[in-house]
């Protein structure tokens, strides 16, 4: 089996070959000619059902433990969200929102597990200038290869979800890996494995969509008419999806973008600017060199020197006369 089908089961006991290797790359940052992969892995996805989340933060703990990160101890400022934001040491974060539903006047406590969405069309990868610092595997996982990262922060500008964080210690970008190192060995992501209510589930993207359909049908039957799947087409769909009970207004879940897409500014920067800019500079340089070699230079003539001598002499005479 090329991709794990669930996060719940224990890992296979028989030895297996790591299945996320160079030959499984479909995109590689700052690399134009990437050989096509010789196989297609089954696309995977993580499905986060916000209606089943109890806000326990087991996912955060599991993430910290598996990735061996050490988020700073921060101060409690009166909200449940902790730490205050995603950091280079906290790849996933439960964002808590107290929202009053205008239709029912009920307070709804919305909890969204934030983190990398693993876009099919990743803005971070598009913006990245360093070859191989960001890669996308054929199973849909977008991963940062830290040894190639130069710390420029372009990925931050490319991302429509505000996910990557640059470490002030080693100046490299960090984010959720979708536990690529676990998935490569047949295991689901640590957060999904730890989730006590199965609000986070993992499997093939097709299976997750089917599962989402069941959940949405259930939510609709319980009065959430706008329940739906968040798999935004603006970024080609994502490999982390949400079941939202209010899918008509994703922004109420701690500013989840309603219609995320790569910023037009980034598209212009990484598109027309890059190509026409390079061409203009190359042509100008080549033209200057060619014209310099073969064109006629503007030379000072001997009579110019004579005229200058004469001018200076006359000026001297004038001064001596005065």
């Amino acid at each position: 089996m090329d991709s794990p089908r669930t996060a719940v089961s224990n890992p296979p006991v028989q030895p297996m070959e790591s299945n996320l290797t160079q030959r499984d790359l479909v995109r590689r940052s700052a690399t134009s000619e990437l050989p096509p992969p010789d196989r297609q892995l089954t696309p995977v996805a993580k499905l986060i059902d916000v209606s089943k989340c109890i806000g326990c933060k087991a996912c955060q703990s599991a993430c910290i433990e598996w990735n061996d990160t050490f988020p700073d101890i921060e101060e409690n400022v009166g909200v449940y969200t902790n730490p205050h934001d995603l950091t280079e040491n906290m790849f996933t974060l439960m964002r808590f929102t107290e929202w009053v539903n205008p239709e029912t006047d009920n307070l709804e406590w919305l909890i969204r597990k934030d983190g990398c969405m693993h876009c099919a069309d990743p803005g971070c990868l598009k913006a990245c200038p360093s070859p191989g610092a960001i890669v996308q595997y054929s199973n849909g996982i977008v991963d940062f290869i830290h040894e190639n990262c130069i710390g420029c922060g372009y990925c931050v500008k490319g991302c429509p979800f505000n996910i990557p964080r640059i470490s002030k210690v080693d100046h490299r970008a960090y984010k959720c890996t979708l536990c690529s190192d676990r998935v490569a060995m047949g295991q689901g992501p640590a957060c999904a494995k730890a989730c006590p209510t199965q609000a986070i589930v993992f499997g093939t993207k097709d299976d997750m969509k089917k599962h989402a359909d069941e959940r949405i049908a259930d939510l609709k039957s319980r009065g959430y008419a706008n329940a739906g799947l968040y798999d935004p087409p603006g970024v080609g769909g994502t490999h982390v999806m949400y079941v939202l009970h209010h899918n008509d207004k994703p922004h109420i879940y701690a500013d989840l973008p309603d219609d995320p897409k790569i910023s037009a500014v980034i598209e212009v920067w990484k598109g027309v600017t890059k190509y026409t800019g390079l061409a203009a500079m190359g042509l100008a340089a080549a033209g200057a060199i060619l014209h310099g070699l073969f064109g006629k230079a503007n030379r000072v003539e001997p009579e110019d020197e004579v005229s200058a001598e004469k001018l200076v002499e006359e000026a001297e005479d004038l001064r001596e006369g005065a």
Binding site: K157, S263, V265, I266, W269, T273, M281, A284
Partner: peptide, 20 residues
Amino acid sequence: IDVRRIAVLTHSVSAVLIIL
């Protein structure tokens, strides 16, 4: 972030022009 995106584009375009 919007300011930073515009800045990165402006920086690139200006760099091309100053090189010319």
